[in-house]
């Protein structure tokens, strides 16, 4: 097979498009880490639950899939609040390993609860634009993918405004820098944690709805995106938003170039090899600060 320049350019385009989907998930994870210094490995399971919820809402009520995502977003955000209160808050500040254990427990619970409710059948959310695509020279892009990119950019912009321009954002930033000082300054840290987790869960929910429209999904779908999102933010440095975007694009492109030149089975192996190399050279990621 001869690989031509257009093929490589297309591959880079796919890499960017794929990276975009994961950036949204990664941002939520990253926010939670930035503010709470906590990693929720069960983040992808919120994506999975949101995909199922969006599917159920749009099938049961005949609602437009994109509107259904908003409903699902609210439900998942509330769920996130519950999860934070009942589980993570209780292990915060103890051994770091406990976060891994709690996350694993949550993964088992979410996946199997979803399996009991929705069964093992794969599903896909039908959007009003399914099957339609915009034809460009040499390639065509589905409307759903274009909407996904727009939604991701909009969500990230709204998120940026929230963090930079609002009072809550200020409080969140203060908490992320030094939570004891923030507490002394009269910030209700527990409330900030709650809001942070809710926003993180909501971002995962949006990602889940988009995922369910673009791809098909079942109860096990959360695992892979979480791992990829983790790899992305770890590469970029935990807590660094800039790093998450660079990491996301880097991951997407590395995976797709490996797929092109070595074959699809090498995709994530090469992406993880890249992750390992980055971490061995810089143990706190590309943009990570020297911690603790």
């Amino acid at each position: 097979m001869d690989i031509t320049a257009p093929t490589i350019i297309l591959t880079l385009v796919w890499g960017v498009a794929i990276g975009c989907v994961y950036i949204l998930l990664a941002t939520g994870l990253n926010l939670i880490f930035g503010v709470m210094k906590l990693v929720n490995f069960a983040h992808g399971q919120l994506l999975m639950l949101s995909a199922f919820l969006t599917w159920t809402i749009s099938v049961a009520s005949g609602m437009n899939a994109y509107l259904a995502i908003i409903v699902s977003m609210i439900v998942v955000a509330l769920l996130g609040v519950g999860v934070e209160r009942l589980t993570f808050r209780r292990v915060l500040g103890t051994d770091k390993l406990n976060e891994i254990f709690v996350s694993l427990g949550l993964i088992y619970i979410f996946e199997n609860a979803a399996m009991l409710i929705w069964g093992p059948q794969p599903k896909q959310i039908v959007s009003p634009f399914s099957g339609m695509s915009l034809a460009l020279p040499g390639v065509s892009i589905t409307y759903d993918r274009i909407i996904a990119v727009v939604v991701v950019v909009a969500a990230l912009a709204a998120f940026g405004v929230l963090i930079k321009k609002t009072k809550i954002g200020l409080a969140m930033r203060a908490t992320s820098q030094r939570n004891t000082t923030a507490m002394l300054m009269g910030i209700n840290v527990e409330k900030i944690y709650m809001i942070t987790f809710a926003i993180g869960a909501a971002l995962a929910a949006v990602a889940g709805g988009l995922y369910g429209i673009i791809f098909s999904f079942d109860y096990q779908v959360g695992a892979m995106p979480t791992i990829i999102a983790f790899a992305i933010i770890i590469m970029g440095g935990l807590g660094s938003i800039k790093g998450a975007i660079v990491g996301g694009l880097l991951y997407g492109i590395a995976e797709q170039l490996a797929t092109l030149f070595l074959g699809g089975i090498w995709g994530s192996a090469v992406a993880f090899a890249l992750l390992i190399v980055v971490l061995v050279i810089r143990p706190n990621g590309i943009f990570g600060e020297k911690g603790e």
């Binding site: 589980t87 209780r90 292990v91 406990n98 254990f101 709690v102 694993l104 427990g105 949550l106 993964i107 088992y108 619970i109 996946e111 199997n112 609860a113 399996m115 009991l116 409710i117 929705w118 069964g119 093992p120 059948q121």
Partner: peptide, 23 residues
């Protein structure tokens, strides 16, 4: 939707036990 409730129920119980124990 599920033909054998036993297996997912088992994993669900394990998840709950894990959480309870960690906390």
């Amino acid at each position: 939707e599920v033909s054998n409730v036993g297996a997912p129920l088992g994993f669900l119980i394990i998840g709950i036990i894990l959480l309870v124990i960690v906390i």
